[in-house]
């Protein structure tokens, strides 16, 4: 069994869904944040990919593309001690309380 990210040739009969969704603002945010963090030397593409690959297979397969990136950004920044899980959780609660 290849890892969850190593998808070439994994059997499926699923047709290619050619419809494209309009990006939500948070998806633009996540995409751009990786670029910004790269410029600041806080994350590189190889680390981003490792962070994605660190997700469990279930998490990987059930997450959308930028949910995976978000998980990886958090993983790498916490690992490097730039932010802590606790402060991210606290800041997320504030967003929840304010915006629902």
């Amino acid at each position: 069994m290849p890892s969850a990210h190593d998808r070439g040739g994994v059997r499926t009969r699923e047709p290619i869904d050619q419809t494209s969704h309009e990006w939500a603002d948070w998806e633009h945010l996540v995409n751009a944040m990786v670029g910004v963090l790269r410029r600041h030397g806080l994350i590189n593409v190889d680390e981003l990919r490792r962070g994605i690959e660190a997700m469990t297979p279930v998490e990987y397969e059930s997450s959308s593309y930028y949910e995976r990136w978000s998980a990886s950004i958090e993983h790498i920044l916490v690992e490097k001690g730039v932010l802590s899980t606790e402060e991210i959780t606290a800041a997320t609660r504030e967003i929840d309380a304010r915006w629902g």
């Binding site: 290849p2 890892s3 190593d6 070439g8 040739g9 190889d46 490792r50 690959e53």
Partner: peptide
Amino acid sequence: AHHHRTPWF
């Protein structure tokens, strides 16, 4: 176990 770029197939 580390990150690598060689696909399984």
